[in-house]
Design a binder for these strands. Sequence first.
DNA 1: CACAAAAATATGTCTAGACATATGAAGTGT
DNA 2: ACACTTCATATGTCTAGACATATTTTTGTG
Lengths: 238, 238
Amino acid sequence: MTGKRSGSAVAKAQAIAAEVRRRIVERQWRHGDRIPDEADLAIEFDAARATVNKALQMLADEGFLDRRRRAGTRVAIHHKAVFAIPVVREQVEQAGMAYSHRVVAYRQSPIPAEIAARLALPEGEVLVHMRAVHYGDGRPFQIEDRWLNPQAVPGLEKVDLGRFNANEWLVLNTPYLHADLAFSAENADRRDARLLGARHGEALLVLHRTTWNDLGPITTVRVAFHPGHFVSTEGRSG
Amino acid sequence: MTGKRSGSAVAKAQAIAAEVRRRIVERQWRHGDRIPDEADLAIEFDAARATVNKALQMLADEGFLDRRRRAGTRVAIHHKAVFAIPVVREQVEQAGMAYSHRVVAYRQSPIPAEIAARLALPEGEVLVHMRAVHYGDGRPFQIEDRWLNPQAVPGLEKVDLGRFNANEWLVLNTPYLHADLAFSAENADRRDARLLGARHGEALLVLHRTTWNDLGPITTVRVAFHPGHFVSTEGRSG
DNA sequence: CACAAAAATATGTCTAGACATATGAAGTGT
DNA sequence: ACACTTCATATGTCTAGACATATTTTTGTG
């Protein structure tokens, strides 16, 4: 028969998308993995293939999946958010510069009130606090001041963030469900100026970003860009 | 019969969306107008209703259309871009402040090289150049420095932009097909400082925005925010 | 082995039909 | 006037089937 619809509270395609998203976020299906094809998922979820197709297309739009004809559907490696979290290395290398980075500070530390409020964690909770500088052709490109929640990042303890790049490692290994972004401008303080090679008081574009997954807040970071840097995007039509 | 597909170069839903978009941008269907229902459009375009539905949902996602059950589909009044062009008045009033604005300068003027390059127009072309200050509770909130292309904005000559708000008028009356956004930080120069009530040299968040429609560039604007202002968004999951 | 042709396969898209649901409009009673 | 009910209607969503298309895999050939 055609056109049977249960009066379920949530649309079926939405429910399928939610379940697939859950499997990705909970690592049941990992980065780069091929997931079952639409026909199999249609059987599993007792739905028409068109419904599964719709669900998977939604997830592809959100950046969770990469889909190609004949090649199948894979869990995305890069996360295409609207304001995508840029992997700094790629940004630098795309500009034709040689990338390098240096971790300036790395320690466990109780969080101050401001960070606690932003992460909705109790003040004094101990998180990983790190600062790093990213360079293009040896010149400072951006500095990051980051708080990391190990509880939300399984596998973090195995990574030497002093050597690897926190930004990069997180983007590649930690899907997030929600992100807050805020741009502002700040006059460079002495530390900013020193690390970025800017003048004291110079205007810096600052980006605050906080991400969450189902386990709680993942990380919050303050990124300050080299003076004169632009962050641009293309607006959707409307 | 089921499942007939012509091997057209462009997907049918895409083509329908493009045609509806064209009718909106060219004012055949105007803001707030009710457009024909899915069944009628399906007949007109010789497509299944599901295909028309897909096309219209795409346009609703892009912010061109507002759709409601039983009430039908209307051309959207507000333009929900990803980084929506905020109507400053709404921003201010939502913060519980009284809105006002003042046009500081308004004249026809040949465009300098930088603006010409940004708009892809010949240098020296004469456009409308205006500067305005937006206030919340009487205190400067943002300043805008805008170039307007009358050729791309039919009806502009009838509007007294000295009284009405260019930002608001454009958002409400001029659909755009494409927008570029770029954030940067600048130290306030003397004029910025005076108009915004900031200190000379203070870091300002600056947003450059340029929009186009099928007639060409509509407007490019530099918006400088009051010191300490944040522009935030919610990232999509991914 | 190199390379081209053919087969296989997963996603992309469309169609026709059906039922679900929200809500505007009209009618009804108080 | 006002609240309440009923009805009509446009969109929302799903199903099953079919063909289209991009790629990968396999097979055939020099």
